[in-house]
Simulated scan of single mutants.
Amino acid sequence: MRDEVKKNRLTSFHPSSLRPHPFVCVPVCESRAIDLREAIARASEIADIIELRLDFLPGDELFKALRNLPSLINASARPLIVTLRSREQGGQREMDDNTRIIFWVEHFLYGKPHINYADIELDLVLLFQKREKAEGKAMLDWERVICSQHYFAGVPDNLSEIYDQMSETPARILKIAVQAEDITDCITIFRLLEHAREEGREMIAVAMGDAGVMTRILAPSRGAFLTYGSFDETQQSAPGQVSARELRDVYRVHKLNQDTEIVGLVGSPVMHSLSPHIHNAAFEALRVNAVYIPFEVRNINEFMRRMSNPRTREMTWPLRGLSVTAPHKLSVMNHLDWIEPSAQEIGAVNTIVIEDGVLRGYNTDAPALLVPLRARGLNLIEARC
């Protein structure tokens, strides 16, 4: 019976099966082996797939978990991705390459069936591929391999070459994660997803950090195999990780598609804003196919040129409009085709509408303040604030 359940879990994730919606993956990042079973059960309530981050287990806690690994996986209601990442690779545990190799040999290679998916870093994937050729026989089930590479110091200049190297491996799924220094770093991620889709490759692509949040929300609608969402703030496995509940309930990632109109808040910082909760709730209530995203923007000039202006932007996406907050309300005016006279007089724009290739700027701050006061009969002539 367990084998049948496991077979059904895996079939739903096979590339030949129809995927009804994007997948949200919830990492389990416990520090005690005894807590893993309950944590997996909790994650199953909101996850489509779960990542078991074994590198979060310190000292002997890892070996306690490994003794029960098959039963943990078999008891899960969702497929599990098993990850054991060294600190050098961006993980939480100090270990040398031999330890990493021994782990996969003992728990995944040579036909061991219990791991649903194995997230294996590129260096080991290349090593196992080389050994397979030398031995002349299969060492592992490549259909269950996620070949991953992580960059926590920004976007490497040779990222396209790295993708090519990964795509030449037999791994079914490719994963690249980079640290976004500014929002324009997300362009590279969306290009990778487009390239992988054109080549028929399954891929996970993430820009980490607050500047990369849009990739976590939009990547599944651009063909990503999954997106990561934490169970809560204490269980984040990477910078800028949005909670799984927010991905589902606020951003509605399971409903987003290529036609979803995109709007958002431009500023720095913006992650504290309640605007996504307000606007996305309105879209859901009115059944509007749109999503409102926080855009953490440091360089407004590059964002407007490379991502916003339909005549110069470097990515194809249905960006419909922007809310603008500090510190960009003044500097953004240089990039607009038309500005309403009152906004010109005020010297600030907080709303941009993009329509027919034209960017129009407005200021709604003043009416939002004045209309309620006038409604109370206050005389505001020559008033100063």
Rank of each mutant, 00 (worst) to 15 (best):
K64D: 01
K64S: 03
K64L: 03
K64H: 05
K64T: 01
K64Q: 05
A65Q: 03
A65N: 03
A65H: 03
A65V: 01
L66V: 11
L66M: 11
R67T: 09
R67P: 01
R67E: 12
R67G: 05
N68D: 11
N68G: 04
N68A: 07
L69F: 05
L69H: 02
L69D: 03
P70Y: 07
P70N: 08
S71L: 08
S71N: 10
L72P: 00
L72S: 01
L72E: 01
L72R: 01
L72M: 10
I73G: 03
I73V: 11
I73D: 00
N74A: 15
N74T: 13
N74W: 14
A75Y: 04
A75Q: 10
R78L: 05
R78N: 07
P79A: 03
P79D: 02
P79I: 00
P79H: 01
P79T: 02
P79Q: 02
P79F: 02
L80Q: 04
L80R: 00
L80A: 03
I81F: 10
I81P: 04
V82Q: 04
V82D: 01
R85A: 04
R85E: 08
R85N: 06
S86T: 11
R87A: 13
E88F: 12
E88G: 14
E88H: 13
Q89D: 15
G90P: 14
G90N: 15
G90F: 15
G91Q: 08
Q92A: 14
Q92D: 14
Q92Y: 13
R93I: 10
E94Y: 06
E94W: 06
E94D: 12
M95H: 09
M95G: 07
M95R: 00
D96I: 07
D96Y: 09
D97I: 10
D97L: 10
N98A: 11
T99N: 14
T99V: 14
T99E: 15
R100Q: 12
